[in-house]
Structure formats: C-alpha cells, structure tokens
Write a protein that binds this DNA or RNA. Structure first.
Length: 278
DNA sequence: AAATGAACCTGTTTGC
DNA sequence: TGCAAACAGGTTCATT
C-alpha cells in the first residue's frame, strides 16, 4: 500500500483518537512480521500512554510516557485500524491492542512485509531504521538545489533515484510515476542529464502531488485503508499509474508501461520525451 | 562506491 | 473451469 500520503493520512486520523490514550492488553498472534517483534514492546506497551504521534518516512512513530517510541511500518499490505469488539479476527490480524474504550487497534498484514519496533524516544531519528534516510519531501530541505546536486553525482534513471530512500523518503512507485509525468520527464532519463529547470519542475510536482494526495486521504488500490477502515481517493486522480494502454489525458497517446528496477513504470511517450538514457 | 536484482510472503489477477 | 505464472504500494541484502 503505503507511500508517504497514506501513512500521513493514517497518522492524521489516528492522532485525535490516540493522544492521551492508555494502552491496555497487547496480544501477539504472531511473533514475527518482517522482523521479530521485540518482547519488550509487548511487555511495556501495555499500561503506557501515547504522548505524540508523528511520522518519519513511511514509519509511524508513537511516543509513550515510557520514554520509548512504538514504531509501526505497514510494508506493502499492512493495515492499522480500529476494530469494534464484534469484528471477527482475521487470520492476518497479527497484533491486537486494546485501548481505553472498548475498541481495539489492530495490525493486519497478509504479506508480513511490515514491522514493529520499540526504541528509545531520545535520539530516535539517529537510530537504526532512520540513520541513513534522506530528507522528507515536503520539508524545505528537499529543494531543487538539493535534488540537482544529488542528480549530478549519480548516473541512474531518475525514477530509480526518486525511489531511493537515501535521496528522498516517502516517494514510492505510484508517486514516482505520477511526479515524472507532471514534470514531463521520462522515467529512464539519467539523473545527471537533467537540467536545473527539469529538477525545479520535478521537485515542485513531487510536493504538489504528495500534498494533494494527503488532502484526499491517500491512494487505495487494494489494501490501504485509514484508521477507520476508509479508503483514500487519490487513485481516482492517477494520470499514468495503472493506466497502461489508456489514452494520456494531455495528448490521447496510449500510456505505455515497462519494468524498471523491478517496478512497473507507466509513462506517455509523447509528453515524457526521452532525451538520454542508459 | 554505486547500481542492479533477488529475496522476503501471501493473495489476487491474468493467461493458457 | 482449472491451474500456473505473473504481479502487487517496501526495504534490505548480496552481487556486479
């Protein structure tokens, strides 16, 4: 599912319901997701109060009054949502967390690419999952100046560069495809061949598209739902993602697709002209 | 060093 | 209809 807009939408929905909440019983129905779930998380989360709910990259961060932060990553197919007590347990409901009211926060993840961790809140962002991450795309630190400098030092297709979390976090396959379409750049264009004007357009479009998607609750293709099990709406705005063979909204040329670094890539051959490539 | 590709796992869709 | 292959929003690790 989840790229930055989905996680941010989820965070915004969870925040008013979880800030100040004290956690009750925590039930593990599986001891590992992508990685083992720390025993200390299960032991200490119960009884803790949530003080702050924030986000870094696609990681959801829940600070507690234990001076520990509960870290949740949804991987590809994860859901993190409130369930009424009468909702049957799904075979992929791996973690159940009782809250103060009778609702239960559930972590459901069929593919188990998600993860949870429990780390010291102090200096959290310098710890393992976060130490080598690039800037947040919606912060000023992610600027055309910054991106241009990075592009100049690498020789890789621009789409691969955008999806590299050491360069910028939160831009996954959907938003990389969409941003490149609006910036009129072909996914295969080598980063070092882009002009500063190209990068200015690209940087601006990434921010526009991510902000727009957050406003409408992110994209739901199959798995993603928010804290209240509601889907996002941004998939209704896709210009190229998944539109293989359908006419470009700008020029009516059929959208093409290819595999790039193992990911489906969608583009318009007329609007996104390939000047240089590998 | 940097870039590419495979692996992790299960469910759904596609194609023969 | 049935079965197998391909594919899926992410990230890490091994290999060039």
């Amino acid at each position: 599912m989840p790229e930055l807009p989905e996680i941010e939408s989820l965070r915004q929905k969870l925040e008013p319901q979880l800030i100040g909440a004290t956690i009750g019983k925590v039930t593990l129905r599986r001891k590992d997701l992508r990685f083992p779930i720390p025993k200390a998380l299960v032991r200490d989360l119960s009884g803790a109060t949530i003080l702050r709910l924030w986000r870094r990259s696609k990681y959801l961060l829940l600070d507690t009054d234990f001076a520990k932060t509960w870290i949740v990553h949804l991987g590809m197919s994860g859901r993190f949502f409130f369930a009424n007590p009468d909702l049957p347990i799904d075979k992929h409901d791996h973690v159940l967390v009782n809250c103060q009211d009778d609702r239960q926060l559930r972590f459901r993840d069929p593919r188990r690419f998600g993860m949870m961790d429990w780390l010291d809140t102090k200096d959290l962002l310098s710890q393992k999952w976060f130490a080598h991450l690039g800037p947040e795309p919606l912060e000023d630190e992610f600027s055309a100046d910054y991106l241009y400098k990075v592009c100049q030092t690498r020789r890789t297709p621009i789409k691969s560069l955008l999806m590299n979390a050491e360069v910028v976090v939160g831009v996954g396959n959907i938003y990389a495809n969409e941003s490149l379409f609006f910036a009129r750049l072909h996914p295969l264009t080598l980063s070092c061949d882009l002009s500063f004007a190209d990068i200015q357009r690209l940087c601006a479009q990434i921010k526009n598209i991510l902000n727009h998607s957050i406003q409408v609750g992110g994209s739901s293709i199959r798995d993603y739902v928010d804290a209240n099990s509601q889907p996002g709406l941004y998939q209704l705005s896709f210009s190229v993602y998944g539109r293989d063979g359908q006419p470009c909204f700008e020029c009516r040329t059929p959208i093409e697709s290819m595999q790039l670094a193992g990911r489906s890539s969608f583009y318009c051959t007329k609007c996104q002209i390939l000047r240089n490539a590998v």
